[in-house]
Design a protein around this nucleic acid. Structure first.
Length: 456
DNA sequence: CCATGAATAT
DNA sequence: AATATTCATG
């Protein structure tokens, strides 16, 4: 059961109601430094930035553009508070966090922000301040040599920045810090009558993996970037379309943030390794750079001595972008495993393993061992086996399981049978550019003899 | 506690 | 639809 933040904070602030859909509501608590000057001006808020306001369209239009395309989708989308929210965004862990509570939380924060603007009352801005402070600290810590997205929020990054700017490698750190700060402050705001929020976490493992602040941050970052895009063109970041799947909102600037993170990851070499694979993981349901199978497999090995690069949680299923944080001992903490794609090659191996083992022994674990594919899990096999068996039951032989390459659309006679590729090609959405900044996946993977590294 | 497989979720 | 995750069961 989700903690009723609305009620609690209303109690504290005496907030009545109806900050609800005020477009400014979501903006305020995120820190005025993140406000586009236009918005700040429009609402009489202090504009802390130095970025010259873009040529001003008629006010109405401005709000329309800002709130229509930016604020609402970004914030509301990030909150997943409304019907249009992405189905992929919600995680089982979020289950108990009622959307009304999410919205209420925003409302409350908005209220706090407004109070803060009017009369610097510590208590009321505690959440925002704490979060901001923590964010700054985190940013400083993880990107000491350069400015972070937070420390210089008004600096419009260049295109190259999105790829190479260390700030984005710290994006998650910042977000995590935000997340932590928010939950922590929410938890410790007891004096004001707040009880510790019992945000539902079905796993019960990470009590303070509070998605809300993460989402807020994402929205904030998206705003910031959108705002930066003023000078670049349409007001849409050029990267928005590269990873349409991340938040399942291709048009949402929230995707930009994800793209930035993903780009940062790409810069570290993930997603472009040239090696052969029977199967492959792809980071998104709908799109994204191809992740090299073996690289991933390696990445999953906790003990690996690879650079502690942000193996960004470029996975939309990721419960929290903090998932890939590193524990004190340097070992990687739970990284969400990307979705496996059963390529024809992989399926072949699967099938031959099944046949070889025979009906009796063809159980997931055995099959997995027989296949001897690095990184392949029992769950992977079990799931595929389930489908395989179903497929058989319904008349067809298992080999008819349609494990085509994900960029192949084979319907009717429209197209010739796809040649079996030596390497799996991962989904490339129709409109998606190859990869942001050229660092992402390409289809240029090179066969190297056909065997995935034997595992172990 | 672990593996399995069906059911269910994403 | 494909794959992942959950859950009851052995």
């Amino acid at each position: 059961m989700a903690y009723d933040v609305v009620q609690a904070l209303q109690g504290i602030y005496g907030m009545k109601d109806d900050y609800g859909l005020d477009p400014s509501a979501g903006l305020v608590p995120l820190g005025t430094s993140l406000l586009p000057p236009i918005v700040a001006q429009a609402f009489g808020l202090p504009s802390l930035g130095s970025l010259a306001p873009p040529p001003q369209p008629p006010p109405q239009q401005q709000y329309q553009a800002l709130y229509g395309s930016m604020v609402n989708p970004a914030l509301l989308g990030a909150l997943g508070a409304f019907g249009g929210a992405s189905q992929y965004q919600s995680q089982p862990h979020y289950g108990g966090l009622a959307s009304t509570s999410a919205l209420g939380y925003l409302q409350a924060l908005a209220a706090a922000g407004q109070h803060q603007q009017q009369q610097q009352q510590q208590q009321q801005s505690a959440v925002a301040l704490l979060a901001h402070t923590a964010a700054l600290a985190a940013a400083a810590r993880s990107a000491p040599a350069s400015s972070s997205a937070f420390s210089q929020p008004m600096q419009p990054p260049t295109a190259a920045d999105y790829c190479s700017h260390p700030a984005y490698s710290s994006a998650r750190a910042v977000a995590c810090e935000l997340e932590r700060a928010a939950t922590a402050s929410a938890t410790t705001s007891g004096p004001s009558g707040m009880k510790g929020p019992t945000f539902s976490n079905s796993a019960g493992s990470a009590p303070y993996q509070h998605p809300l602040m993460q989402n807020l941050y994402t929205a904030a970052l998206a705003q910031q970037q959108q705002q930066s895009a003023y000078g670049v063109g349409q007001g849409m970041s050029p990267y928005a379309s590269h990873f349409p799947g991340y938040y399942a909102r291709p048009d949402t600037s929230a995707a930009v943030a994800a793209a930035a993170v993903a780009a940062a990851a790409g810069a570290y070499g993930y997603g472009q390794a040239p090696s052969v694979s029977y199967g492959a993981y792809h980071p998104s349901y709908s799109s994204g750079p191809a992740l090299d199978y073996s690289a991933l497999a390696a990445a999953y090995r906790p003990a690996m001595s690879a650079p502690a690069a942000p193996t960004a949680s470029i996975n939309p299923q990721s419960q929290s972008i903090c998932d890939d944080e590193y524990a004190d001992d340097g070992s990687a903490r739970a990284i969400k495993r990307p979705r496996l794609v059963w390529t024809p090659q992989l399926h072949k191996k699967f099938e031959s393993a099944v046949l070889k083992l025979g009906d009796e022994k063809a159980v997931p674990k055995n099959i997995m061992q027989e296949m001897n594919i690095d990184g392949l899990t029992r769950e992977n096999v079990a799931s595929h086996l389930q489908k395989y068996r179903m497929s058989r039951k319904h008349g067809r032989d298992g080999s008819s399981i349609d494990c085509r390459d994900s960029d192949t659309v084979t319907i009717g006679s429209k197209r010739e049978p796809e040649p079996i590729r030596p390497t799996p090609i991962l989904a490339q959405p129709p409109g998606a550019a190859k990869a942001a900044c050229g660092a992402g996946a390409s289809s240029e993977q090179i066969a190297n003899g056909g065997s995935l590294g034997a595992r172990d």
